[in-house]
Design a protein around this nucleic acid. Structure first.
Ligand SMILES: Nc1ccn([C@H]2C[C@H](O)[C@@H](COP(=O)(O)OP(=O)(O)OP(=O)(O)O)O2)c(=O)n1
Ligand SMILES: [Mg+2]
Ligand SMILES: [Mg+2]
Ligand SMILES: [Mg+2]
Length: 866
DNA sequence: ATCCTCCCCTAC
DNA sequence: TAAGGTAGGGGAGGAT
């Protein structure tokens, strides 16, 4: 019937829908899973036979695979039935790869301990309560832990409220946060979409069934309408853009048809909002301000513009939860994606809030991409709900018109997703296609290929509608008198370039004229990878902070390994409570009003090692004297990526011949890594006089030794030793030692030592020592020592919130901590861009910053300069 | 000129 | 209560 059965049949139950294209997933499936598929299929057959409509059964356990351990109530076979009925899987035998949840009433301590700490062990009530609640509940209150009897969690109606800070200390917080973060999910799904496109292209296709259907459609309609066969110009580019209509809401409506046409919003606050919206007086809905929080003040910091236009917006914000997506009926009231739910309710009192269904969005997204992959592989993933299709060739080959393609694709998207609509725009380039989609929404299509039509659309189009023009650029353009594309067309590139920079000016002018020559780019190399959490961060102690950073580093390590990349530069970011901001934030768990602190470190070697990253982070935290109690958010970014070709093992296996040469300034000078093209992570013998590319090198007793690119190198007793590019190097007892580019270097007892470019260097007992470029250096007992800091790393901080910065001045530059000996400035995380002075600058941004709500976008704003 | 680092801005 | 992530383009200003 509807696409639903088909959908499940394709992806396979429990499959999140993104399984690698081609044979990989198939091959990987265990017999148990295969058996499960059979069982599900027969279940489906049963349902179909009995006329049981599957629509009202929500797959709330999608992605879950349970293994039942020991006796339970309800018994295992009943749990198995429930899992299968609600989208989950059941494994007869425990397997780490297959099983996501172990279900047990009690478990021997020894057995619990044997399981990895990240394994989820829950009581059967997690399943039964989730079914009662109609959604998958958080496992936390149902978890079985060492030394704990079967817990007795509260009924699902009264949610187990743990304060954010209570949840924070626990190691599972990071996973829990990500599991509930919509922004994390949409980023991750965009990545999966890109990967799927790459996989499809790699696998190739014998034929394109979608193209066949399109051809059939074109022929059928051609025979009906005599000479309607219009040839596409032979070499004209046609780009189609597809975007799901209010994506999250559309998915929500699949199981809530009664809400169609109504103002609906997806948000986290939805569960409790039901009782709140039933409260006609609204007073019960009022969020009780927690002790010390100052919503009005905070709202003023965020929303200069909004606050001035709406006198009391802070206190009226009853819910600070964000609206991820809202229906078009809600948009008619002025509600927008990214808006706070409280404000949305002001604009639209009848607004119905519904909860997230992440698994379902992912499944729908996967269907969208797989469907388009049946037409062509010239796809550019934009996001989980949006992509470009290079379709000139497809149209020529099938003889179909652009409108026919759009109609067919939209119809099939709706079928495959079980009823979600998409809109399509077609144009001669990415820009016009995208603008056309916007025009067509919702549930429509627009073909915009003729120059006259394009010109007409652009004439009065506000510049803000252009992709790439957000709040800040709009403000600048408007103040220059270029509020619309039509006006912008009259601008001179040179003049505009002086205001906005040459590239922006040119792109803008092109856009205003409907020109855009970017190709549909199906694959591109990743340039950075990161993990960041700015929610729920509350530390009591440095140990809390370190544990959290440890978790983030591990997360990042996992992401790097999954993406098969390693990084050669690390960027640390901390959001610090602004000194004038109250401890308690208006938004529960939010970061509140903050200054951000950034520090980057050029690593001497590429790495994907969490331990190393953590070490760097902690050095930074201590060096900058960041108080854990004031931290509201932390992030780690890696750049200067290199492919992790040799894969495997130790941090710092040399990245093959392709390593780029620009390491740190120091390392470049002293150690031309690029010259050592050896990809081997081999370990040369102790007597070898030169060792390069070693993952872990050890050299002792060498008369003249040199070691480069070692991840962990140690050289002892060398008469003349040199080590460069070591991640962690130690060189004791060398007569004359030199070490450069070490992430963490130590050199002791050397007669004449020099160390440069070390992130963390220590040198003790040197007769004559010199250390330069060390991020954190210590030298003790040197007879003659010199230590200087330079700009191998930079630090800066800026304010989280601020109005659009006009001409942001800012001589950030080479802000290395500079000192002889030790830096001991107090740090107040201000916007001081000139750290060299070490001067405190408390309220660098005392002038009212602003953060205004965004139409389509988010409501974050960024820092102005002082 | 061109590169590099440190940001800001934008989009979903 | 609530889950404010993530990646890329590009400008400013300094180094080369
Ligand atoms: N600030 C935002 C913007 C978007 N999203 C999520 C929810 C959206 O449903 C999805 C897709 O974003 P779109 O910009 O495509 O917006 P919608 O699909 O919701 O609406 P439209 O019909 O305008 O495309 O991404 C979000 O969580 N927060
Ligand atoms: Mg959309
Ligand atoms: Mg979209
Ligand atoms: Mg825009």
């Amino acid at each position: 019937m509807s696409g639903r059965g088909r959908r499940r049949g394709r992806g396979g139950p429990g499959d999140n829908g993104w399984g690698e294209f081609g044979g990989y997933m198939e091959a990987k499936k265990s017999k148990l899973a295969a058996q499960f598929e059979q069982e599900i299929s027969s279940d489906e057959a049963d349902e179909a036979a009995s006329g049981d409509r599957a629509e009202h059964i929500r797959p709330i356990f999608a992605g879950v695979c349970i293994h039942v351990d020991g006796y339970t109530e309800p018994p295992a076979h009943e749990l198995k039935r429930l899992m299968q009925k609600y989208g989950g899987r059941y494994a007869h035998y425990y397997s780490r790869a297959e099983v996501s949840h172990t279900v047990a009433s009690q478990l021997a301590t020894s057995k619990l301990k044997a399981l990895q700490p990240d394994r989820i062990v829950v009581t059967p009530r997690w399943i039964t309560d989730s079914l009662k609640a109609g959604k998958r509940l958080n496992e936390a209150p149902y978890r079985l832990r060492v030394g704990q009897e079967a817990p007795n969690p509260p009924p699902p109606s009264c949610s187990p409220s743990k304060g954010a800070s209570a949840a924070m200390g626990r190691p599972e917080y990071i996973g829990q946060f990500y599991a509930n973060s919509r922004l994390h999910h949409i980023s991750a799904w965009a990545g999966k979409a890109r990967q799927l496109v790459a996989d499809m292209r790699a696998a190739g296709a014998a034929r394109f069934p979608g193209a066949d259907r399109l051809r059939a459609m074109a022929e059928a309609e051609r025979s009906g309408t005599a000479a309607a066969c219009r040839e596409q110009p032979q070499h004209q580019r046609v780009v189609m853009h597809i975007d799901m209509d209010c994506f999250f809401v559309s998915v929500a409506l699949l199981t809530r048809p009664e809400l169609r046409g109504k103002p609906v919003a997806v948000s986290h606050a939805s569960t409790s909002s039901r009782q709140a919206s039933g409260d006609a007086g609204g007073s019960g809905d009022r969020l009780r301000a927690r002790r010390g929080a100052d919503p009005d003040w905070e709202m003023r910091q965020y929303g200069g513009a909004v606050a001035s236009e709406k006198a009391s917006c802070g206190s009226l914000h009853q819910s600070w939860s964000e609206v991820a997506s809202c229906s078009y009926a809600a948009r008619a009231c002025g509600v927008r994606n990214g808006m706070l739910l409280g404000r949305a309710r002001e604009l639209c009192p009848e607004l119905v809030a519904v909860p997230y269904e992440f698994e379902a969005y992912e499944a729908a997204s996967s269907q969208l991409y797989r469907l388009l992959g049946e037409f062509t592989h010239s796809l550019q993933a934009v996001s989980c709900d949006e992509l470009f299709v290079d379709c000139g060739e497809l149209l020529r080959e099938t003889g179909a018109s652009p409108a026919q393609l759009a109609s067919l694709v939209r119809k099939e998207v709706q079928e495959r997703t079980g009823g979600c609509t998409a809109s399509c725009g077609l144009g001669p380039n990415l820009l016009v296609a995208r603008l056309a989609t916007k025009q067509a929404k919702p549930d429509g299509q627009r073909v915009l290929l003729d120059p006259a039509g394009i010109a007409e659309l652009l004439r009065d189009l506000p510049v803000r509608e252009l992709p790439g023009v957000g709040r800040a650029l709009e403000a600048r353009l408007t103040s220059l008198g270029f509020g619309t594309c039509g006006l912008l067309r009259g601008a001179q590139v040179s003049a505009l370039g002086r205001e906005l920079g040459p590239r922006v000016a040119q792109t803008l002018l092109d856009a205003a004229n409907g020109r855009d020559d970017r190709p549909v780019l199906a694959e591109r190399e990743r340039k950075s990878i990161s993990a960041e959490i700015n929610y729920g961060v509350r530390f009591q102690t440095m140990a809390d902070c370190e544990a959290f950073l440890d978790g983030l580093c591990r997360e990042l390590q996992a992401r790097m390994r999954a993406a098969k990349v390693r990084g050669r530069a690390m960027h640390f970011k901390a959001m610090m409570r602004r000194p004038d901001a109250p401890q308690e934030t208006a938004k529960f768990g939010g970061h509140g009003v903050c200054n951000t602190v950034n520090k980057s470190v050029a690593l001497p070697l590429d790495t994907d090692d969490a331990r190393l990253l953590l070490q760097e982070c902690m050095i930074i935290v201590r060096q900058l004297r960041l108080a854990p109690q004031d931290m509201r958010g932390l992030g780690i970014h890696m750049t200067r990526l290199v492919p992790a070709t040799t894969g495997s093992g130790g941090s710092g296996s040399s990245g093959g011949g392709g390593r780029s040469m620009d390491i740190s300034r120091f390392a470049k000078k002293v150690n031309p890594f690029a010259a050592s093209g050896s990809a081997a992570s081999s370990l040369s013998g102790a007597t070898s006089s030169s060792m390069s590319g070693a993952t872990s090198g050890f050299m002792s007793g060498a008369t003249s030794g040199s070691m480069s690119v070692a991840t962990s190198g140690s050289m002892s007793g060398a008469t003349s030793g040199s080590m460069s590019g070591a991640t962690s190097g130690s060189m004791p007892g060398a007569t004359s030692g030199s070490m450069s580019g070490a992430t963490s270097g130590s050199m002791s007892g050397v007669t004449s030592g020099s160390m440069s470019g070390a992130t963390s260097g220590s040198m003790s007992g040197a007769t004559s020592g010199s250390m330069s470029g060390a991020t954190s250096g210590s030298m003790s007992g040197a007879t003659s020592g010199s230590m200087s800091f330079s700009s191998a790393s930079g630090t800066s901080s800026s304010n989280t919130f601020g109005g659009p910065s006009g001409a942001t001045s800012g001589a950030s530059g080479a802000s290395g901590a500079k000192l002889l000996g030790r830096k001991a400035s107090s740090n107040c995380y201000s916007n001081d861009r000139n750290k060299v002075t070490g001067k405190a600058n408390f309220f660098a941004n005392a002038a009212g910053p602003s953060l205004i709500e965004d139409e389509e976008g988010d409501e974050r704003a960024d820092s102005p300069a002082v």
